[in-house]
């Protein structure tokens, strides 16, 4: 168990997104565990840059050949940037989920919902228990 990576500096949601904070800019992607569960990712789709989202909203979707997963943001704000390169190379999410496989950056209006998320250790044991 626990063969997946879980960088210590990130926050994690139960729906398997990770959140990195830089000022009020929050970068979101899916975890190594999630990409492994999904298997070969063949398609990603995100809401447009400029859209505003509420905490708990879906900002997009990832698809493998056998599953489709909705992506959720824990913070509200405006989508500042979308990783367009994934549209042509969705496999990047499998290869480098915490790096080149990032998905969207949200300019957050309020960072406090992040406090309710898991840290790396908690997320690891959460995944172990599934």
């Amino acid at each position: 168990m626990g063969e997946w990576k879980t960088p210590a500096e990130l926050k994690y949601a139960e729906t398997d997104e990770w959140f990195a904070v830089d000022g009020n800019m929050v970068t979101i992607g899916i975890t190594d565990y999630a990409q492994d569960q999904l298997n070969d990712i063949v398609y990603v789709e995100f809401r447009d840059a400029g859209d505003t989202v509420d905490a708990g909203d879906s900002f997009g979707e990832v698809e493998s050949v056998k599953a489709a997963s909705e992506l959720y943001t824990a913070v509200a704000g405006e989508i500042a940037e979308v990783n367009m390169s994934l549209e042509d190379a969705p496999e990047t999410v499998n290869a480098d989920p915490f790096g080149a496989g990032w998905m969207v950056k949200i300019s957050a209006s309020d960072l406090s919902p992040l406090d309710g998320l898991m840290d790396a250790a908690a997320y690891d044991s959460y995944c172990d228990s599934r």
Partner: peptide
């Protein structure tokens, strides 16, 4: 394109 379908996506 199977994940669009009801057996995988269900209520979505």
């Amino acid at each position: 394109l199977r994940p669009r379908e009801q057996d995988i996506k269900r209520e979505r």
